[in-house]
Each structure stands twice: as C-alpha cells, then as structure tokens.
Simulated assay, not measured.
Amino acid sequence: MRRKTKRGRPAAAAALLVALVVAAGTGCRPVTVTGAGTGASATGGRQLPTAPVTPPRSHAKPPSPTHHGRTHRPVMAPGAYGGRVRELQARLTQLGVFGRSPTGYYGSVTTAAVRAFQRRQRLPRTGTVQPATWNALRSRTHQPSRDELRPPTSRPIVAPDRRCLKGRVICISKKSGTLAWMVNGTVVSAMDVRFGSQFTPTREGTFRITFKSRRHVSTIYHTAMPYAMFFSGGQAVHYSADFAARGYRGASHGCVNVRDKARIAALFGAVGKGTRVVVHH
C-alpha cells in the first residue's frame, strides 16, 4: 500500500518540495510563480495585460489665473466688421489718424490707427477698442455724417486748393488721388482718379476745358477714352476701364483716369467748354 501525506498527497510531492528548498539555498534561480498577475512563468511565457492604475481623484479646484486689475471685454477688435467698425473708422478719420475711407472691416490699418489714438490719449496701446478708448474717441469727435461713413471716394478728399473755392471748378488733387466737382466751394460730387507715370506726367496748374468727346478714341495709343474732357493739349479727364479693373497698379499717358463710369458720365453732362480745371499736388 502506498504511503500518503497528511493531506492525502503522495510522498513524492513532499520530497520535491524539500529539493526546491535546498536548491534555493545554494544560489540556484528559483521558479517564480505569480498569481493572476503579470509574470511570464505562470502563463508559459505569455505576458498578460495589466489593469491601469487610477490615481486618487482630487477634489481641489485648480487655481484661478491671477488678474492684475480689472479687465474688460473689448468693444471692437481685429477681425470685426459692420456698421460700428465703419463708425470707428470715420471718427478716427476726423482726428487724422485713419488715412483711408471707412470700409467697415477691422484690419491692420484700423489697428494701427487705434494704437495711434491710444498713444495720444495715454491709454494702453492694445490696438483693440476697450470701453475707455471708445468713450474717449466719442467725446472728441462728432457723430459721422452719411458722407463720412460712406464717402464717394476710396481715399479721403483733402482740403481743396484755394483756386477751387470760387465758381464751377473740376478740382483734382494728386495728393489724395481724387477729383471733386465743386460749385462755389461746395463739393457736388467726387471720384477716384489716377495720373500719368513719371515718364508721361499729368500737368499741374489751372486750365480750362477745350474739347469734349463722349466716345473718344486716342489717335496715338488707339485706346478708348469715354467721356473725355480735354484741358491741356492731348491730356483729358476721362473714364478708364483699365483703372476700374486694375486699380492704381497702372498709369495713364498723362490723362486723368476716372474709375467710376456713372460719376464721370454725370460730370460730363454738367460741365461745358471753358469750365476751369485745377490740378494740384
């Protein structure tokens, strides 16, 4: 009959256990047996995935950012557009810090103009319109008129030359790139214009219209010159389709090019031979 251990196991099992203890005592590497854990020996060399360890949840709130002084949400900032931006630009134009006609878009030019105004008023030069900036601007300007909000030209009309203040005059400014049709010092209509290049400059001075041609074609350059009003030899005020399409990137051969066809057509009908033309810088 086979001899059994106290738990009913064979005596051979007890002998094996004694052998393992002896081996461990002599420096041999024991077999590592792990539970339902991560050891490779317990799984025949296959690594089991481990469960992620979740850190204890903290109930403390993160610290709030430190604010030095009270902050306000901007009234207007770069990227904004609309009627309020147009009013902002018109008010800045009144103070001479915005050198273009209002567009209604808050871009880099408007940002620079706002900074210039803030510098003048010793306000933080943020380039955005904070309540303090807006209040200061409104207190130093008047409510823009319709023409100030939507001027007829893309560039502000400069103060007219003194020669343009009496009678009926086509007053042309090279400085602002505008033409103003004036009657006794009042601007009746205005339009954008461009001039000749440095090789064919537009003459400056006081002239008179000598000849009008509604559908004129240049005999030198063979180009159309609609609503031409000649004032100095071959130089004339006329509509330019090229100016309308390309803007100020081009130049004329000495004539005063007008971009707006409807406005030059109205001017053509309003003036006659002998009307004064003043071209000034």
Rank of each mutant, 00 (worst) to 15 (best):
G234A: 11
P74G: 08
G274Q: 08
V258C: 15
G177S: 06
L17N: 11
L123V: 02
V33C: 07
T275H: 07
V18C: 03
G96H: 08
T43L: 07
Y248M: 05
G250I: 15
P30Y: 05
G250F: 06
P55E: 12
V279D: 05
T32C: 05
E148C: 01
I170P: 01
V33W: 08
Q143V: 14
P156N: 09
G96M: 09
R57A: 14
P151C: 08
K166V: 13
S173Y: 03
R163V: 02
H222F: 09
L179S: 01
H216C: 01
A265W: 01
L267H: 05
R3G: 12
S108T: 15
F117L: 08
C164F: 00
T54Y: 09
R155L: 14
T110I: 07
Q235W: 00
R162H: 13
S108R: 13
P124Y: 08
P144Y: 04
L88D: 05
A19R: 12
R168S: 12
G96C: 09
V21I: 11
I172G: 04
H216Q: 13
V18E: 14
R138G: 10
R100K: 14
S154F: 01
L149R: 14
Q235T: 04
R29G: 09
P49T: 09
A113S: 15
H222M: 01
L92H: 04
A11T: 13
S197P: 02
A42S: 15
A180Y: 01
R29V: 14
Y239Q: 00
V183S: 11
F117K: 01
F243H: 02
V187C: 06
K212A: 06
H281P: 01
A19S: 10
M191E: 15
A11N: 10
G250L: 11
V279I: 15
I209M: 06
P30C: 07
P62T: 09
A136Y: 03
A13S: 10
V188S: 11
T223W: 01
A80Q: 08
R168H: 13
T206Q: 10
P30K: 03
T141Q: 08
V85E: 03
A40E: 13
Y221D: 12
K273Y: 06
V22W: 07
R91C: 06
A245L: 11
L92E: 04
G79P: 08
S176F: 03
P63Q: 10
G83E: 13
V129G: 00
T38P: 05
L17G: 12
A251P: 01
F268C: 01
R86L: 02
R150A: 13
L123I: 03
S64V: 13
H238F: 07
M1E: 11
P49L: 11
